[in-house]
Design a protein around this nucleic acid. Sequence first.
DNA 1: ATCTTTGTTAACCGTTTGGTTAAACCTTAT
DNA 2: ATAAGGTTTAACCAAACGGTTAACAAAGAT
Lengths: 203, 203
Amino acid sequence: MANPKTQDTEGQILDAAQEVFQKKGMDGARMQEIADQAGINKAMLHYYYRSKQLLFEAVFSKAFALLAPQMNKILNDDSSIEEKVKNFTHNYISFISKHPYLPNFIIQEMNRNPNFFEKLQQNTAFPTLEKFNKQVGLEVEQGILKPTDGKQLFVHILSLNIFPFVATPLIKALLGVDETGFNDLIEERKTAVSNFIIESIKK
Amino acid sequence: MANPKTQDTEGQILDAAQEVFQKKGMDGARMQEIADQAGINKAMLHYYYRSKQLLFEAVFSKAFALLAPQMNKILNDDSSIEEKVKNFTHNYISFISKHPYLPNFIIQEMNRNPNFFEKLQQNTAFPTLEKFNKQVGLEVEQGILKPTDGKQLFVHILSLNIFPFVATPLIKALLGVDETGFNDLIEERKTAVSNFIIESIKK
DNA sequence: ATCTTTGTTAACCGTTTGGTTAAACCTTAT
DNA sequence: ATAAGGTTTAACCAAACGGTTAACAAAGAT
């Protein structure tokens, strides 16, 4: 990633917009604050991106494009289910630890405007569950896994990996841990989650 | 719940505010829209609740007060871990199916303003993990459960139960299901989630 | 050198927003 | 009847908002 100071104006704007939108959401973000963050005049935002809506869509699409490959890895590569679970859990948690605002941003804005999300769904090469589903069925037949529904398993995997990052303040409060304690918990989860899943589905 | 038409103005406002705030969040909600929803003049909102912030806090506190007892059930009653997991999963999913906006509202606003949440944490009888943690340790010693960390197990349980309601649009898209298909999936989860957990931790 | 295009700014504009006000409207006690 | 209290309304207000404009600066092209 390039140093902001050496980037051109358009890139500086996108970086600033990403920061502000991810912290405050579409409704809470202010064009002036994005301009201040980027260290430029507010008119430049409109010069490069026309409107708040279009600037937001640029930020959202860029963010979503970061996540999609992670999904495709678990859905469409050729390793076994057990390997997929282990790799996805470890990789995803590592990845999100570096971008902690990302999941909440995506989910918050998907809920705010499902229409825009449907548009994205058609344009992007959107991941599908087909291959994963078949693979689970096959490994059940082969006696590698206990009887397991692919859809439910996939939702389990997403829930266990993503939820803690979405509900960080709630979990901190309920567990009574601070920033450090939470980070330790997350670090533990890189193995705890995959062990928990494998233990449940492996024969 | 009383019929809105037979309620007094203050109650009508709170109901209308709940609906609008839960759909659009603090930043997206408009006082005029709340007034319209309640069928009254905008000035009445300020007459009864002084400001948008105070009206919002009334809505948030009421919503949180609905969820806290659910948490306490799994943390502080006297049944076994297995029973707790089964009951919590079934009860929580049933409960949230009737209030689908609730989890996302709480989480979204907790992330937006962690300070306000800390205030709430001190005032309310806030659930703690202490008893649950001890109980897990005990059942592990007794050979009922495999070696299990109480904290991680609790995060697992919350994640599996809450996440699908928070990320509904994402899950619908990835699984390629419509409203009906999603509802079926959720209905299945009342047993699928508890079986999945028990299978993993029970000796 | 001068023209043209692109990038940048301060000032401005119309609208929307949360919030206020003063007058009117009930209800009820005397 | 009427005075007093709380309740409700239309009209209004200042501030904040997204967006525009016109003038200016920088950089290439001829």
